[in-house]
């Protein structure tokens, strides 16, 4: 007798829906995405699931498994209790399209607000590994948007218009700390991207499948940079005194 599990999957669209239970046979090493594929292939061919690589590299298959935001391709069935149904729900913070697929286009709109890399004039293209290490952590991001989904500023307070979310602070950290970048995005962070809304409660760091230390290494350093420019009277005075001209955006 093959071992089985019950998946309790959300079925529905933007108008509403309910969960439906599916019985799925368990194979060794199976992940939740395998179970969803089994449902597609045998029980519900129109079950909408977004996925690409099934190897934890593309960040497409985000969902909430037993209430926890996860990549379904990296969530092992044998790590979940199978004596009760495993709930699989779409990401809560984004508008539902169908079943487990949500509309994440907001993220792409936010990304457009961030000025791209622009080298300082006349830079020599020599970069030291010690300058690269820090930024490479941010570049690991696979844009699964789980951090955006779990962040309570978006999830509970719907600050989509005023707040960019952890993903884009990670992106900006990668640009701001790029050793050759010549732009300054502190004003943008403070005013348009609402970094002040972040109260550093670290859920983004907890869910990141790439183990980027989002809060400590990206958001807090950016907050400190914003302090330099807007809240610290001494550094503000010092900048004035030195006549620093930064290319603000």
């Amino acid at each position: 007798m093959m071992k089985e599990a019950t998946l309790r999957v959300f079925r529905g669209d933007s108008k509403g829906g309910q969960t439906v239970d599916y019985r799925v046979p368990i194979a060794p090493g199976m992940v939740v995405l395998d179970a969803l594929h089994y449902i597609q292939g045998h029980l519900a061919p129109d079950l909408a699931v977004r996925w690409n690589c099934k190897a934890g590299k593309c960040g497409s298959c985000s969902a909430e498994v037993n209430g926890r935001p996860r990549l379904t391709c990296k969530t092992r069935m044998d790590d979940l209790p199978v004596d009760q149904p495993i709930t699989v729900l779409p990401m809560k913070s984004f508008p539902r399209i169908k079943d487990l697929v949500t509309d994440v286009s907001w993220n792409y709109r936010v990304n457009r607000k961030i000025p791209a890399f622009e080298p300082r004039p006349g830079v020599e293209w020599k970069i030291s590994q010690l300058d690269v290490d820090r930024v490479q952590e941010f570049r690991k991001c696979i844009e699964c948007f789980l951090c955006q989904n779990v962040c309570h500023v978006l999830r509970e307070h719907d600050k989509m218009e005023q707040f960019a979310g952890p993903r884009f602070f990670v992106r900006i950290a990668g640009l701001e700390m790029h050793p050759l970048d010549g732009r300054d995005r502190a004003g943008l962070l403070k005013d348009q991207l609402g970094i002040g809304f972040c109260n550093i409660t670290k859920c983004c760091t907890e869910v990141c499948p790439e183990e980027i230390r989002i809060t400590d290494n990206a958001i807090i350093p950016l907050k400190e940079r914003v302090v330099d420019e807007f809240y610290d009277p001494l550094t503000m005075l010092f900048r004035k005194f030195r006549g620093d001209k930064v290319q603000s955006v």
Binding site: Q40, A44, P45, D46, L47, A48, V49, K98, D99
Partner: peptide, 10 residues
């Protein structure tokens, strides 16, 4: 295929 044209993997 079953279902509608809305995001239908089948």
């Amino acid at each position: 295929v079953e279902g509608s044209r809305l995001f239908n993997p089948g």
